[in-house]
Amino acid sequence: MSEFFTEAVLIATIASGIRFAVPLLLAGLGEAYGQRSGVLNLGVDGVMLLGAFGGYYTVLKVGNVWIGLLAGLGVGLILGLISAFITVTLKADQGISGIGVFLFGLGMSDLLFQRLVGTPRFIDTFPRIEIPLLGDIPWIGEMLFRQNLVVYLAFLAIPVSMVVINRTTFGMKIRAVGENPEAADSLGVSVAKVRYATMLIGGTLAGVAGAALAIDLGIFQQNITNAQGFIAIALVYFGAWRPLGVMLGALLYGFVNSLVIQWKTLGIITDSWSDFAAMAPAIITILALVVVATRFRAPSALTKPFERGE
């Protein structure tokens, strides 16, 4: 255990915990937009998987990680549009249609990988950017300010989302549509437009999250997300539908994950225990979820398709 409590290992654990939190943070924020407007999108993991493959394959072919990230964004946008069409326009049951999108993403991403790539090949990963001055702060600098650009952008998305949801007319419409779509409709707010917008934001962020995950690891494999899209949905409940709460949840998950990997590498937990320990992040998240989620109320119109008239 003593080898864990060294400066270098502790800093590395926290730094990678922050990095691990990024896909969850992005996907969770996107899901929060949808849920605040009353749409539960269970397809996040499928969107992440396709975004991951899109990002990976683009980098493999083009050799530029940023174009890869954009490809993930594009994939997410398209899938967000499809999801919105299914749940908002066709008013399909959100639980079942989400599972459909997930299964589609799971199967399609693997199929494309098998047909187009076959044997896994490594790709470039995001370059680290050391922020001048801040990066030089002992401990803190190494943990927070020597990350890649996606990490900074993901964390920047939190205050941006807080302002959007709480301080803009668009955010007010999102909250109104998620609580009482009839009331919003009676004031001329288009429930469909607002929900399309949040689904597009959610899809885009999930696609980016997937691409960021694959490019960060430098590889693609079947089911690379390992259900992180579902964890992201859980984190929205954990975070009581607030951006800051989602961030806390994502960081908790990231740190525990990073800790388990670090301990495994250092031999603090034996191999036979390591599979068991790999469950720890999920278990801790579920426990925290049970405690936190019971204290807050979900948006009233969550999962309810909107139809005008009684």
């Binding site: 007010m172 909250r175 109104a176 609580e179 009482n180 009839e182 009331a183 919003a184 009676s186 009233s300």
Partner: peptide
């Protein structure tokens, strides 16, 4: 039936 958003 009031057309109000209770949380706003």
């Amino acid at each position: 039936h009031f057309m109000l958003v209770e949380t706003l």
